[in-house]
Design a binder for these strands. Structure first.
Ligand SMILES: [Mn+2]
Ligand SMILES: [Mn+2]
Ligand SMILES: [Zn+2]
Ligand SMILES: [Zn+2]
Lengths: 157, 157
DNA sequence: AATGAAACTGATAATCATTTTCACTTATTT
DNA sequence: AAATAAGTGAAAATGATTATCAGTTTCATT
């Protein structure tokens, strides 16, 4: 039925790691959650649904889920790790709005190809890369323009 | 004479921030240092040369130097901030060897242009970006091959 | 030169995300 | 069932960074 869960169970079995009730619940929450949530947010969701699960257990479970290749930890440099789905997802990079925190997932095959060429030119064996574009999303730009025009109007009066 | 120091003094003056002996020493160390050093490493260098300067003062001074636009803090996701020269330097991205930690500075104008287009396509007003390519540098690849062949020879014997 | 305000320093404490520890419980193997 | 291994949760530890605060230095004004 749930092929991801099957995959996870297989991974644990292969590595002689037990499949506990806590790990099951945390995986369920992760699989049903919005993208890019932090540990604190995942912990809250787990608590709401099941309670009585420790913070450290959520950390441990999410690290396992990452090791299994089902989640990926992403780091925006703000000191908070976020997690996103990786199983069956193709690689992508992020546009991040510095105002509202919105994530836009992007993949640009030309850039990816140029990255490979760049690494090759420096005799680098490329393992992974991180590309994050920070700026203001269209909604936030619109909102900023709006408030500017309101200010201008106030000045006129 | 030292135009960067002049620039720094001007920045501090403009912002009513004093130019102390500690700030002078820390700036000197930063200006003469290898690229991409951490606070701990800068602190060591400062200590060797002058001693009696507090850790917090180094943090504060480096943050100031960044605000002035002379240094830039870079984050590789390993929890350690590193600093590099920014004054008069053009933007660049990094190839980072996951084995030896070597940095290679790169700039690919095609990628930069594609990034701008990508942002535009999503109606994003781009402020800054981060691109880091992780892998093995040619020296580390060579070393790995070497040790592999040694192992193979051992097996033969 | 004296004075008072403002800025700076350095030691230390606080913060915050994450990891470790450890006594205890649960699952698996013998 | 007993022995062994793994997992859990609470609490402590860690490590980078920032905040606090009493004492010091600098600057401007008298
Ligand atoms: Mn994503
Ligand atoms: Mn650099
Ligand atoms: Zn936004
Ligand atoms: Zn290397």
């Amino acid at each position: 039925m749930n092929s991801i869960k099957q995959f996870y169970k297989q991974y644990l079995q292969n590595n002689k790691i037990r499949y506990s009730a806590q790990r099951d619940k945390i995986l369920d929450v992760f699989l049903n959650m919005e993208r890019h949530l932090s540990i604190a947010q995942i912990y809250e969701l787990v608590r709401n649904k099941y309670s009585h699960i420790g913070y450290a257990t959520v950390y441990r479970a999410m690290n396992l889920i990452c090791k299994a290749g089902i989640a990926e930890k992403i780091d925006l440099g703000d000191g908070i790790s976020r997690f996103e789905h990786k199983y069956g997802q193709e690689h992508h990079d992020h546009l991040i709005c510095v105002n509202c925190g919105k994530f836009i997932e992007v993949i640009d095959t030309q850039i990816e190809e140029l990255q490979r060429q760049l690494a090759k030119a420096h005799k680098f064996v490329l393992k992974r890369h991180k590309m994050q574009l920070f700026g203001s999303c269209c909604d936030c730009v619109k909102a900023a323009k709006q408030s500017l025009s309101v200010l201008a109007k106030d000045k006129q009066d």
